[in-house]
Design a protein around this nucleic acid. Structure first.
Length: 648
RNA sequence: GCCGAUGUAGCUCAGGGGUAGAGCGUUUCCUUGGUAAGGAAGAGGUCAUGGGUUCAAUUCCCAUCAUUGGCUCCA
């Protein structure tokens, strides 16, 4: 007999050789029907794996992440089988479960797969699924496994197996299909009821662009057709919130092929929104002791040689600009920090002067690969809400935490309540990717981790994600399509002060090197506004709205009164517009609603006589008639209610 | 940059070897209205660009450019 401990702490005795599914059945038949995966002593096992010793067993259903993982991983096997049946000479490589579904990377040889083929593959997959084939795991020797794939001429699987230890190699079989696999499947293919293949994409073998490009088929599957339908509806919903679509509809920004790809053009409403965001941050930064500086859009090549950016990114950047006669080389500014370092150098500093905090909304230009451009989130010219803090090593901890406070204030003011943070450290295996001495790196990394702990942020540590000159703390949020984007960033840098030979005089009358903090709460104005658009679906906080009030006259007869209402609101610094067109009120309301204008004021004969407005709120409808002054107070109070002050 | 898809009116999109269509928007006229589309008429397109096949190309083929889903990259 063996003792199986369940997650609730209860311990049950079973015959050795009992399977997780048997245990599930012993709890209840109904529960067992939903169990699709299991972990024994924290190791993923099949639901049919015999258990031979005491241990902790966790049973997973579709509701658990682990269950979904097993479900989608198993679906990838079904996909592979369908592909093999339809395209006999292909070479399978890897096919994992991902956050939303699964994919399989396949070498199709000379065949090209297109979207039209997906339907046929889906049909084949459903046919296989309906066969209710059981998944079973079988151990094999390394030699046998190698032999199997060498015979097939599948060099990818051979490469995978060569990197595995003998004795740990398993195959998974279902129906007549076999694949190298470490396990974690659902009991049988019949549990997969709904399948949708989403897209085809190219993907490099092992993620290395020097390797052969394979064809990746993305799909998702569900235990019920209804869940698939809901998922597809969710995707539709996400599309409606896409910042590229909303940006066009709300006339915020555009792109022009003639101006160049990745170079956004801000339309009046978008520019106004941007300006308001900038002013919001400027106000908080002023309180926090920042001073604004301004630097040019280009800089001498020498500047970036000193900073190290040229060596690191020069080759992949826009090519240097040559002056006509002297042949001097200038670069489009890819970073503001070298300029700010030169500002720091304009005069000698005492430790009593520090910290110095230089801030700039600095527009930078970077050559991003054409395939990488994406709306406003990945562009070639963008404006950073940049600042650099030059401080003594003693001040680092305090300054870093102050920056965290500022970032949290910004996020809180804009409704980003769900964010995570990432501490990005060096890749210990690739020291050549970084500049600066390892001791300083350690100091910087330790400073960030301690600040994050003190501030009780929810964080993950990612090795190898640091900037080349220093470690960083990034703030990430998710967009409407579930993609994670980096917003704010705070970086500790001992290296640039070294390279620019920055100094201050200490209390000991000796010269010392300051520490630098790079920081940008928004990250870039472009990206931030994109994410804000998707986050709010275009319903920005009232204080940011390009147009807060639409005054809709019932007919042209009330044009004069609507103009009067507009003037009075503008006196109270409320952004309003009038709509006196020869259209019905229903149409004017509809358009204002679609333009997401927060308040609509309907004015007609009654209102003109009484000096009132009939107020309609976006998304809510009629909220009644009131004196104009009352409405003005109402909206001003609403704006005040959502604007928090930044307190240092 | 690489692999796939897409590019038709200002916008959203249909069409298809014989030089183009809808809805919305826009213009003009009628209508002067009470909380999500009042009515009528008109204007508007070298069908992304450049080649090729063909009696004939917007349609088929190739290339380029842009957009897009991924991969790689991201100071």
């Amino acid at each position: 007999m063996i003792a199986i401990t369940l997650p609730d702490g209860s311990v049950k005795q079973f015959e050795a050789g009992v399977t997780p599914m048997d245990v599930a059945k012993s709890i209840s038949e109904g529960f067992a029907r939903n169990v699709i995966s299991a972990a024994f002593n924290k190791v993923t096992v099949e639901t049919s794996t015999p258990l031979t010793q005491d241990g902790n067993l966790v049973l997973y259903t579709w509701k658990d992440d682990q269950g979904k993982k097993a479900f989608w991983h198993s679906s990838a096997h079904i996909l592979a089988q369908a592909l093999e049946q339809l395209y006999p000479n292909i070479k399978l490589t890897i096919g994992p479960a991902i956050e939303n579904g699964f994919y399989y990377d396949v070498d199709f040889g000379d065949t090209t797969l297109s979207d039209k083929d997906l339907k046929e593959i889906e049909t084949k997959m459903l046919e296989i699924a309906r066969g209710k084939h059981e998944f079973s795991i079988r151990e094999t020797s390394k030699a046998e496994a190698l032999d199997y794939y060498k015979k097939q001429g599948n060099e990818y699987k051979v490469e995978l197996i060569e990197n595995l230890e003998d004795g740990t190699i398993t195959f998974c079989d279902h129906d007549d299909f076999t694949d190298l696999c470490r396990g974690g499947h659902i009991p049988n293919t019949g549990i997969v009821k709904a399948i949708k293949l989403m897209s085809i994409a190219g993907a490099y073998w092992r993620g290395d662009e020097n390797n052969k490009q394979l064809t990746r088929v993305y799909g998702i599957s569900f235990p019920k057709q209804k869940e698939l339908t809901e998922y597809l509806e969710l995707l539709e919903e996400a599309k409606k919130r896409d910042h590229r679509k909303l940006g066009k509809e709300l006339e915020l920004f555009t792109f022009s092929q003639k101006v160049g790809q990745g170079l956004p053009l801000w339309l009046p409403k978008g520019a106004a929104l941007r300006e308001r965001l900038e002013n919001f941050l400027k106000k908080a930064q002023k309180k926090a002791g920042y001073e604004m500086v301004v630097t040019p859009h280009i800089g001498h090549k020498e500047l970036y040689l000193t900073s190290g950016h040229y060596q690191k990114y020069g080759a992949d950047s826009f090519q240097p600009i040559l002056t006509p006669h002297e042949g001097e080389e200038f670069l489009l500014k890819p970073m503001n920090c070298p300029h700010h370092c030169e500002i720091f150098k304009t005069k000698p500093w005492s430790y009593k002067d520090l910290p110095k905090r230089f801030a700039e909304f600095g527009t930078v230009y970077r050559y991003e690969q054409s395939g990488e451009l994406h709306g406003l989130t990945r562009v070639r010219g963008f404006t950073q809400d940049d600042a650099h803090i030059f401080c003594t090593p003693d001040q680092l901890d305090t300054e870093f935490k102050k920056v965290i406070d500022l970032v949290l204030y910004v996020f809180g003011s804009l409704g980003f309540d769900n964010f995570t943070t990432q501490v990005s450290l060096r890749d210990p295996d690739k020291p050549e990717k970084y500049i600066g001495n390892p001791e300083l790196w350690e100091k910087a990394e330790a400073a960030i981790i301690s600040a994050v702990k003190d501030k009780e942020l929810d964080y993950v540590i990612e090795e190898g994600e640091a900037a080349f000159y220093g470690p960083k703390l990034d703030f990430m949020v998710k967009d409407a399509l579930g993609r994670s984007w980096q917003l704010g960033t705070i970086q500790v840098d001992y290296t640039l002060p070294e390279r620019f030979e920055l100094e201050y005089k200490g209390s000991d009358n000796e010269m010392h090197r300051p520490v630098m903090i790079h920081r940008a709460p928004f990250g870039s104005m472009e990206r931030f506004i994109a994410i804000l658009l998707e986050h709010t679906g275009g319903n920005f906080p009232l204080w940011l709205m390009p147009e807060q009030v639409a005054i809709l006259s019932l007919s042209e007869k009330y044009e004069k009164y609507s103009q009067k209402v507009l003037n009075l609101l503008e006196n109270d610094e409320i952004r309003a517009l009038t709509d006196n067109r020869n259209e019905t009120i229903g149409k004017k309301i509809r358009e204002a609603e679609m333009n997401k204008i927060p308040y609509m004021l309907i004015v007609g004969e009654q209102e003109e006589q009484d000096g009132t407005v009939s107020v309609r709120k976006h998304g809510e409808g009629d909220i009644g008639t009131m004196p104009l002054e009352t409405f003005s107070e109402l909206i001003q109070d609403a704006i005040k209610a959502e604007s928090k002050e930044f307190n240092v």
